[in-house]
Amino acid sequence: MTEDFHSRMHIQVNGEPRQVREESNVTDLLRDLQLNVERVAVEVNLEILDRRDFDAKTLQEGDRIEILSFIGGGAGGIFDC
């Protein structure tokens, strides 16, 4: 079955509307956004999702997703070495 036959769902990602294929999970969404699963935290409807559940978490119509990148910089060392 080609992608055209899948219905699409409307979700919000970081406050912006986005359409995804039905049955998509969080890993699919991160892959579409070209984000590395190890470098982000994901909230689904204001609950933090354990990264072990990224595959199992199927997205639902109207879900509000927040993707937070893991950043650690500040003083300069990591930029200087």
């Binding site: 590395n36 190890e38 935290a41 933090i48 893991f70 650690g72 910089g73 990591i78 930029f79 070495c81």
Partner: peptide
């Protein structure tokens, strides 16, 4: 840690050449 339970794997921290601010 409620948000980020563990540090990311070392290999996934961007290299110094890539980084900047």
């Amino acid at each position: 840690r409620c948000l980020y339970p563990e540090p990311p794997p070392a290999g996934l921290v961007p290299s110094c050449q890539e980084a900047g601010v």
